[in-house]
Amino acid sequence: MSKAFTKETDADDDDAAEGAAPPLPSGTRNYMTPAGYARLRDELLALMDVERPKVVEAVHWAAKNGDRSENGDYLYGKKRLREIDRRIRFLTKRLEVAEVTDPSVHHGRDQIFFGATVRYVDAAGNERAVTILGIDEAESAKGQVSWISPIARALLKAREGDVVKLATPGGLQELEILSVAYPAPAGA
């Protein structure tokens, strides 16, 4: 069969593909810190203003070189263009529904809300610290968790000194909250 008649999947539901954040649970808000919002907006603008025009130019140049079916520059360029367009759609959707929340308004408080950095200890004596951030900005390698994660759900609204219960695959686990910190307000 000719490649011209094969369908490539380029649907909107492809947004949850590798590298993208999971879809938002229905009825929830897309909370995000101002820094996370700025980072995603900067990525979107760089894709639209820098990366996409470069790839379009490369594809246009490659298309003028003749046989497109065996032209690696053309085929790779078209694939990269689809990836960029998919990421642009994803970022646009996420930024449209983002609810920017500044965690510094809670600076000095001991109750856990969005944006808190929480130090806790489990029953085995293992101490950990996590920062509760938005779905699109949390990086587990940096000790950040999404506000919809099980650990964040267990910690939210608790206070310093409280013991919370976390349901894990290994059973119920108790966590004692040692400290709660928020970033200082700008200009403080």
Rank of each mutant, 00 (worst) to 15 (best):
I151Y: 08
T33Y: 10
G170T: 12
D102Y: 01
R87N: 02
V50E: 10
V55T: 05
P25C: 10
E160A: 11
K79L: 08
I132W: 03
V55I: 14
I148N: 13
V121A: 07
V55A: 02
R128Y: 08
R119F: 03
V50L: 09
D136E: 15
V163T: 15
P23Y: 03
A63Q: 14
T33K: 07
V163W: 06
V180W: 04
Y37K: 11
T28L: 15
A129Q: 13
L172Q: 11
I177P: 09
L172T: 09
L133K: 12
N30C: 09
S146P: 04
Q144P: 14
E57Y: 11
D14S: 11
H106Q: 04
G115A: 04
D110T: 14
R128H: 11
K3P: 01
R119N: 10
G77F: 01
A123I: 12
H106F: 04
T131Y: 02
A38Q: 15
V59W: 05
R39I: 12
K79F: 09
E96R: 12
R128T: 12
S69N: 09
S179M: 08
R80K: 15
I151G: 02
F90T: 04
E176T: 09
P23V: 01
M32W: 07
L75A: 08
A184W: 00
P150S: 13
Y31D: 05
M48F: 00
L178S: 07
G77Y: 02
Y76P: 00
F5I: 12
L178K: 14
R87G: 01
Y76C: 01
R89F: 04
E57K: 15
A158S: 15
E70H: 05
Y76H: 08
R119E: 14
L133M: 03
G115Q: 04
D42A: 15
G36R: 10
D110Q: 12
A98P: 04
A17R: 14
E176L: 00
Q111S: 07
D122Y: 09
L133P: 01
R119W: 03
E51R: 04
Y120P: 01
G125R: 08
S179G: 07
A11D: 13
K157P: 01
V145R: 15
I148D: 15
L75Y: 03
E57C: 06
A62Q: 08
G125S: 10
V97S: 06
V163N: 05
V97G: 00
A4P: 01
V163P: 09
A123F: 11
W147S: 13
A152D: 11
N30K: 12
R39L: 14
S2W: 06
G27V: 11
A4L: 07
G19Y: 05
F5Q: 13
D14Q: 13
K54Q: 15
K79A: 04
R109Y: 00
L40C: 07
L47M: 03
T92I: 00
R41Y: 11
E160D: 07
R86C: 01
A58D: 06
L133E: 00
I151T: 15
I112T: 08
A58M: 11
W61Q: 12
V55K: 02
V56A: 10
Y31P: 03
R82N: 04
Y120A: 04
R52P: 02
G125L: 08
P22N: 06
V100K: 01
K3D: 05
R87L: 02
R41L: 14
R41N: 13
E99Q: 00
